[in-house]
Amino acid sequence: MANILLTQQCIRSCPYCFAKQHMSENAPDDTLTWENLMYIVDFFDASNEKHFSLLGGEPFLHPNFIDIVLYLRERKFRTNVFTSGVMSNKMFEEAIKEFAPITPNQLSFVVNVNDPKKTSFSELETVKRFLRAFGHFSSLSFNVYREDFDMDFLVQYINEYGLKRHIRLGLAHPIPGVKNSHIKPDGMRDMAKNLMSFIPKLNANKISVGFDCGMPMCLFTDEEMGILYKHAGGQLKFTCGPAVDVGPDMSVWTCFPLSNYKKTTLFDFDNVQQIRRYYSKMMNAGKSEIHGIFEACDDCEWRTEKLCSGGCYAHSVSKFHNEPENLRKLEEVINNE
């Protein structure tokens, strides 16, 4: 599903944030205009994709956020909103009132939550207020940036607020040229072990975990893979592919960690499929030139078989960021595609 950025503003300051650099380089009051929104909706409509995700920064900070959701509903779009759940009282009351007639198959929220032990009380209360009110619309998203992360609170939230019984687990990735918190390759095995320790509890609570892109397959032993397979009902993803993000200024990039890499504009394309093809081609060309996050990725059969991408593409590009000669060679390969 493609992502549309409504605003560059965010209330929080998460240590792993992969939108950090992008937001710092753009004006905070740069919000998606109505003209651009209508263009985007038409673009997707004509591409036969009547669904996308709304992002930010924090989408609820867009001054017309409610109206935008109402508009998308009238255009028969299914909207998914990535939010922190943190918002002003006024916005919250308005959302309660205006979203009342909307059904969960028209609108859904993916609430990105942080460990409560590392969150301020007021922020926590705001998030809980949101989950309480919109639980039936919402699922949780959690970004892992330390090996010793905790998932118990996620289970608690899902049970307490009646959320959808699924967790999107993201692995925080490095942003080329920026210092953000993320797990380094040599810490990933520990992270995987920690994750496996939570699987029994998740199973007992009938909560599934899905991986966001960039999780390397080799982090898990064969036995762990079997457990995960059963847990996820066979739906496991270890590949990294283009997401398609559209900024308020109509710029397009493949994913947030690579928001400054091969940026284009929506006006260069006729439809969404074209954008995906463009970035797939780019990434495939790049992947053929650089190995994944581990040295072993180069000769890995799973990578060759395209069952695993060898971790996040941004990891690899990030490495090259400080190697101008290799970066230049990579550019050449991509440009020749």
Partner: peptide, 14 residues
């Protein structure tokens, strides 16, 4: 002009 373009060329029904 933008409105005219929308009216005449938009691939989305309106």
């Amino acid at each position: 002009k933008e409105l005219a373009f929308y009216s005449q060329y938009s691939k989305s029904q309106h």
